[in-house]
């Protein structure tokens, strides 16, 4: 664990910790990945393309607000749980699939539930996916360290329960 390194910014405003720099970089990375991937997803299913744009813009806005000023604990909480939401959405998309996403109509345009429109396209995990996912998970951990003590403990507990639930569902075979 590193010590808190504080240094003056060139504007002479408030000081920003290294951890906060890392958080900004991680949020920006996730934002760029979502925006770059959006057009491809739009082609498959417009709703997913729009979701990518929205997520990307929110992540960019979050990175910017961290850059501007010392974030309030409340903003950090928003960052943590927003990012957790994105991570969970991704997990659902790679496992049980997003509800209402298009399938392959067969036999007179009836839908085969759970069949992706693009073969093996939707449940594959590529290097970009993995990089983004790791960045988001790291962002959550870094942001956690920025919270005041009490809030930090509560949030850590929340994250733990969230993680245990995922493990539980995976063990029960609900996430395949």
């Amino acid at each position: 664990m590193t010590a808190v390194v504080e240094r003056p910014t060139h504007a002479g405003r408030a000081v920003r910790s290294t951890s906060m720099d890392v958080a900004i970089a991680l949020a920006a990375l996730a934002a760029i990945a979502h925006l770059v991937e959006a057009p491809y997803h739009f082609q498959w299913w417009p709703a997913s393309g729009i979701t990518f744009v929205v997520i990307g813009l929110l992540q960019a806005a979050f990175a910017l607000s961290l850059l501007r000023s010392e974030p309030s604990p409340r903003l950090i909480q928003v960052g943590i749980w927003g990012t957790v939401g994105v991570v969970l959405l991704y997990l659902v998309s790679r496992t049980i699939g997003i509800p209402f996403s298009p399938g392959v109509p067969v036999h007179g345009a009836k839908l085969l539930p759970g069949m992706p429109l693009l073969p093996d396209g939707d449940k594959q995990v590529g290097p970009v996916d993995m990089l983004t996912l790791v960045a988001e998970v790291a962002l959550v951990v870094v942001l956690l360290g920025q919270l005041p003590r009490r809030a930090r403990r509560r949030t850590a507990n929340g994250l733990m329960w969230c993680g245990l639930s995922i493990w539980g569902l995976a063990i029960l075979g609900a996430l395949t």
């Binding site: 790679r94 995990v125 951990v141 930090r152 507990n157 969230c162 996430l175």
Partner: peptide, 19 residues
């Protein structure tokens, strides 16, 4: 705190990593 956050981080990345 780290242990708790790790439970989440591991759960979030294990399945995609395996894929």
């Amino acid at each position: 705190d780290l242990l708790k956050a790790g439970a989440f981080a591991g759960a979030a990345t294990a399945l995609p990593l395996q894929r």
